[in-house]
Design a protein around this nucleic acid. Structure first.
Lengths: 153, 153
DNA sequence: ATGAAAATGAAAGTCAAAGTCAAAAATAAG
DNA sequence: CTTATTTTTGACTTTGACTTTCATTTTCAT
């Protein structure tokens, strides 16, 4: 099995991290990283494993699990703990921090950013003498499509 | 064992729910509910169990667990999934919705509300055609005390 | 090519959350 | 007040989402 990487640019941070830590790059790991970064979605470990398994059934759950943690360590992925109770991983694009709209019905996740909200958050923190390191904002509800479906039935 | 309730008003919703569902009120359940509502903190099941156990060692983990779920069902408690990964329960005062400042060092949790942020949230949701049902906003960082401690060391 | 070091897969281990069921407690009926 | 019926309890088991272990396989510097 020899993996053709779709987009080498995305892997740059991984290779830096790899050299620094003396890692070796297996073809399986490469496949998982490339798939994850190019899909650019919010995967649970289970989900990513099942999708990958359909394409390459020789990759185990352990390897998917460990690769996601590896990506988190080298800053290419980020853990999200939404209210479902299960951890999801999202690719960290070089872009700015963002928050999430999450559909309670179909699970669709939309990213957004709003500097006005961030400003207000810092303002609130200041009022309580808090030093904010990170934050999480999730809006749960129904996406456009699921609202339409509900009206019909 | 006969429980003296500290504040009957807080139990009103429970008794309404109880009648509607044909529940029975054991003294143990009553004790847990009264303790939880009067402490008014963000308990994990484990924490609440251990505190209660110090006062009344005849109450089991199962009962604390089930009572917290019961309170959630009747609207007197709400689950919070903070980034720790463990579920916490907070009493739902009749007051408005609020968000949280959470200290990464000592675990202190401060509640706040900010209608400006809420307005902006709804505005963002609208832009994406989303119907917001609930939301969660957590600011993680260091509280005043932990900042001072850190500077000293 | 080869051997030291890292990665993999299958299995076992964790741990909080959820479920099971016989015994105990609460309430309704007589 | 006693008995009957229903709910609650506590000890236990099960589940499920991770997490680790270790023998085997793969990578890669020499």
């Amino acid at each position: 099995m020899k993996v053709k990487v779709k987009n080498k640019m995305l892997l740059k941070d991984y290779f830096t991290y790899k050299s620094k830590r003396g890692l070796k790059t297996s073809q399986k790991r490469l496949f998982i990283i490339d798939y994850f970064l190019n899909e650019d979605r919010h995967f649970s470990i289970e989900e990513l494993y099942h999708e990958i398994r359909k394409i390459n059934s020789q990759i185990s759950f352990s390897t998917v699990y460990r690769t996601l943690r590896l990506l988190t360590d080298c800053g290419l992925a980020q853990e999200c703990c939404f209210a479902e109770g299960m951890v999801r991983y999202e690719p960290v694009h070089k872009a700015r921090h963002h928050d999430h709209l999450i559909c309670r019905k179909c699970g669709r996740i939309i990213e957004f950013e709003n500097s006005e909200i961030e400003k207000l958050q810092n303002h609130v923190a200041k009022k309580f003498g808090f030093l904010v390191v990170s934050h999480a904002l999730e809006l749960y509800g129904l996406c456009t499509m699921c609202q339409k479906k509900q009206r019909r039935s």
